[in-house]
Design a binder for these strands. Structure first.
Lengths: 162, 162
DNA sequence: CCGACGCGGTTGAGATTTCAACCGACTTCG
DNA sequence: CGAAGTCGGTTGAAATCTCAACCGCGTCGG
């Protein structure tokens, strides 16, 4: 193994800024959503995904893959959302293993009332302070990092037993 | 209240890339740290902060402020770290309310053995794919967002009772 | 058709985080 | 002094997330 290549000052500073930004931004968003609508961000994401899906319906596995949640986490969370009446679980008729999650009207309303505040917060915190040019750069940077992460993900699936 | 200004396509795309990057990056780092050293990232941060502090010691409140953890979270986490023998809590002699957290030698070793893998992962995932120019841009962007978040934080403290 | 295996999803237990209430130690002011 | 308020920190319970085991349905080889 080669000796550790530590981060230089510029990288170090950037990394800490990233950690810190994430931390504060996340907290701000979580708090805003929680106060305004009593929804944790994770649940909000699930509702958004469902709302954008045809018939506001997805199988659990689809939803898990889109949100990148574990099956278990999704299942627990879905139980909560169902209690709130925002989602209904429906057994698939053909393949009786699969469960469909359907966003109810109540769920859609909850989302509608939560969305403006959330979007407003994102805009205020992230995009308003940046120039158009910076937004473009930001997008490029994120896409670059992302593509590396995604290809790493795939190759991990093969990496199971030797 | 003005009508909601939704995100345009460019912003939307950037935002989703951000969410997604965060998600995957976080997962990758957490997993790497966990597998290689059995330390959750939150604990790692605490150890790093202590290790950089004079005498490897900080008061709980200082540590909470640097890491941005709640006092409660910190207290619970510290209890775990103490069980592992990585940190010791010491009562302050003058102000007997305050507790000092001190990184033990074991804790420092644990950190030393965890750090290279973690840094390597960060480098591979984030900095290697980016050009110098992009790193600079990234830093600027994050700093810009950050300064907005920090000033927002201050003003919230006043905002309590009317 | 039968048994083994894989897939979709759930469950329960354990770990972490949050929330609110609390405790003891300073400080301040009458 | 002494009561009230504040500061540093802890605690217990409830919510959430993770991990591993599990259940029922489907599919495939014999």
């Amino acid at each position: 193994m080669p000796e550790t290549r530590w981060l230089d000052d510029e990288e170090q500073g950037t990394w800490r800024a990233y950690i810190w930004t994430n931390h504060l931004l996340w907290e701000a968003l979580e708090r805003q959503l929680q106060k305004d609508s009593g929804i944790p961000h994770a649940y909000y994401i699930m509702l958004v995904c469902l709302s954008e899906s045809p018939d506001r319906t997805m199988t659990m596995t689809q939803l898990a893959s889109v949100t990148q949640f574990s099956a278990s986490r999704l299942s627990h969370a879905m139980a909560r959302l169902e209690e709130k009446g925002w989602v209904r679980r429906i057994k698939h008729e053909e393949d009786r293993r699969t469960t469909m999650a359907k966003l109810t009207d109540e769920g859609f309303s909850a989302l509608e009332s939560a969305a403006p505040g959330h979007v407003g917060e994102v805009r205020r915190r992230v995009f308003d302070p940046l120039s158009r040019e910076q937004i473009r750069q930001f997008h490029d940077i994120l896409s670059t990092i992302l593509s590396g992460l995604e290809s790493a993900e795939e190759s991990e699936e093969d990496a199971g037993p030797a």
